[in-house]
């Protein structure tokens, strides 16, 4: 009996010790930080004293309804970069991955090369991109030589800058997803594909009716993760324009408040408002993805 007890105690001690680092880290950097974030959202300073109330939210709402507010563009930019991921990046990388899966000539090389943008420092690749599309840059020289005209000022024109940043983010993020899709596609058993081919199944049919349903769990996980980041993942604005030329996004605006150690309570309130708006959207997307998942039988 006592031997059994001491064994139990030993096991409990082991479990507690193993869990301690993760639990402590989680409480400090997740629970506490988010709790503090909510408290900050409701607090504001007046004459050196801290008060609690809805002032930050009222201020956000007021600024939002002003005719020349920057927040409308900010939200719009954020949604644009989110949608570009869903509508362009995932479908295109899925199709690219399909051809790699089908062993197009040189597929090993392509798979490896396409992934490289995902491991290059953004502070390098963004700057390189900046020079490539700049005045006197390679594209400019090319256009000048063959068409006798200059490139537009992509990053210093309010109507082009955000599009340029989104283009950069989209263009260099196919490879990372190919890795995920590729892992899932390799898991499809070759017999299924072969017997479908024998039954006269064309390869477009194969992609739509076999491959996509089989990799649906991966696909929906990626979509869900992207939708959780709906307001946070919005491109390397800092590296391109630092918010100039109509390129603010929610997450960059908040980051800028932190850089300037400025308006932190107000920024928390803006963030919290976006989280509250985002939550039902994520739940809706999750519900939708599950529905589709049931339908395709994955």
């Amino acid at each position: 009996m006592s031997k059994n007890n001491s064994r139990k105690i030993k096991q409990s001690v082991f479990i507690i010790l193993m869990l301690t680092p993760a639990i402590v880290g989680f409480f400090v950097f997740y629970i506490y930080v988010n709790f503090k974030s909510v408290v900050m959202a409701f607090s504001f300073e007046k004459g050196g004293e801290t008060f609690y109330g809805l002032d930050n939210f009222i201020r956000f709402f007021k600024e939002f309804t002003l005719p020349d507010t920057m927040f409308k563009d900010t939200i719009l930019n954020t949604l644009k970069s989110f949608l570009s991921t869903i509508v362009i990046v995932y479908p295109v990388s899925l199709i690219m991955c399909y051809f790699i899966y089908k062993k197009i000539v040189g597929y090993r090389f392509f798979r490896c090369l396409f992934y490289i943008p995902a491991i290059i420092m953004p502070t390098v690749s963004a700057v390189l991109f900046k020079y490539i599309i700049s005045m006197e840059g390679p594209i400019d020289v090319f256009l000048m030589r063959f068409f006798g005209r200059n490139v537009p000022d992509f990053l210093q024109d309010g109507s082009l800058a955000m599009g340029t940043i989104i283009f950069y983010s989209v263009y260099f993020s196919f490879g990372g997803n190919i890795l995920y899709f590729g892992g899932a596609m390799n898991g499809i058993s070759q017999e299924v594909i072969e017997s479908a081919t024998l039954d006269g199944c064309g390869w477009v049919r194969e992609l739509i009716s076999i491959v996509i349903p089989m990799i649906w769990p991966t696909f929906s996980t990626l979509l869900l993760t992207a939708s959780v980041g709906i307001f946070t993942a919005s491109g390397p604005v800092l590296l391109f324009t630092q918010g100039g030329f109509n390129t603010y996004t929610i997450s960059y605006w908040i980051y800028e408040q932190m850089l300037e150690n400025n308006n932190l309570e107000f920024a928390s309130a803006v963030g919290l408002s976006c989280s509250v708006i985002g939550f039902p959207i994520v739940m809706l997307i999750k519900w939708g993805l599950n529905k589709i998942g049931d339908k395709v039988g994955a």
């Binding site: 930080v33 988010n34 503090k36 974030s37 900050m40 959202a41 939708s227 959780v228 980041g229 709906i230 307001f231 946070t232 929610i250 997450s251 908040i254 980051y255 408040q257 932190m258 932190l264 309570e265 920024a267 928390s268 309130a269 803006v270 963030g271 919290l272 976006c274 989280s275 985002g278 939550f279 959207i281 994520v282």
Partner: peptide, 8 residues
Amino acid sequence: PIVGSGPA
């Protein structure tokens, strides 16, 4: 979808 925990 937590957005604004950076300042905290």
